[in-house]
Design a protein around this nucleic acid. Structure first.
Lengths: 142, 142
DNA sequence: ATTTCATATGCATAATAGCGCATATGAGTG
DNA sequence: CACTCATATGCGCTATTATGCATATGAAAT
């Protein structure tokens, strides 16, 4: 496979599009925050981030126990153009905007001390449960 | 898989990127012309065109025995944006430009009567052989 | 040093994708 | 009708990919 085709390949997966969308909107985000925003297993998120990084679209920065991911700085022009296209995709994707809302609520907790709290306590704080009550909470908050 | 992720999936293959590039530069092109430009087996080109059409990026028009493919007219904004990114990719890909050169030479033959001549006679006309003499001819023509 | 926390990864499995070959389809031609 | 031509497609094969589970790594905290 082409190096360039690999870039498109990395975009050819729903979860990875969601990740890129959040990272484009929110800047530098660490894995556990992405896990909460997307509500997917950690190994799943981690693997997808790895694919995007391999393709050259993301870079990561270690900071203590946490690893922050962000859109790579040295993208080729065509890569920038492709990612810019995600802005237009975002317009028609409500689920992307819901992701952003969850990510945004999650990122606000950074103020409260450490970046990444324990998942248990944090989820309680966020009222995000695994049983899909996240939407319920979202409604009551908006 | 997402409908949108399917679009990126359709771009995640070198041959399909080459096809899109030619179609973007040359407009409406029929399958046998693409086969000559890319110098790949017909079933291969045909399948890849099908994938791109399924993703909604291409549409086809039958005209007698020939089938013309072109970039779809009713693309979504983000799809247009993604395809526009191919212009920037084209800048750094000499092989894309060679494809265009072959396609362009091939399309000039449309004047000589039918769109699609028999492959044998046509290749003789183009001096494109399977043994890789195409470059040789290209040099002598430029 | 042991434990905890955040993240990554090896492995097995299931699903998917591309390729080459042969052949089907469908439209003109003699 | 038989034939040719342009294109599409079914099949078997191999290669790649995503997923879930368990576990490894690596850094801080106790």
């Amino acid at each position: 496979m082409d190096r360039d085709a690999e870039v498109f390949q990395s975009l050819a997966e729903p979860t990875r599009l969601r990740l890129l969308n959040i990272l484009r909107q929110a800047g530098e985000v660490c894995v556990c925050e992405l896990v909460d925003a997307l509500q997917l297993p950690q190994y799943n998120v981690s693997r997808h981030l790895h694919v995007l990084a391999q393709a050259g679209l993301l870079e990561d920065r270690r900071c203590g126990k946490w690893i922050y991911y962000r859109i790579a700085k040295d993208l080729k022009p065509y890569q920038r153009a492709v990612l810019r296209a995600l802005d237009e995709l975002r317009e028609e994707r409500e689920d992307f905007q819901q992701d952003e809302a969850r990510a945004s609520r999650r990122l606000k907790l950074r103020r409260d001390g450490a970046c990444c709290l324990g998942l248990g306590g944090l989820r309680r704080l966020l009222k995000i449960r695994e049983d899909g009550k996240a939407e319920e909470v979202q409604k009551s908050k908006s």
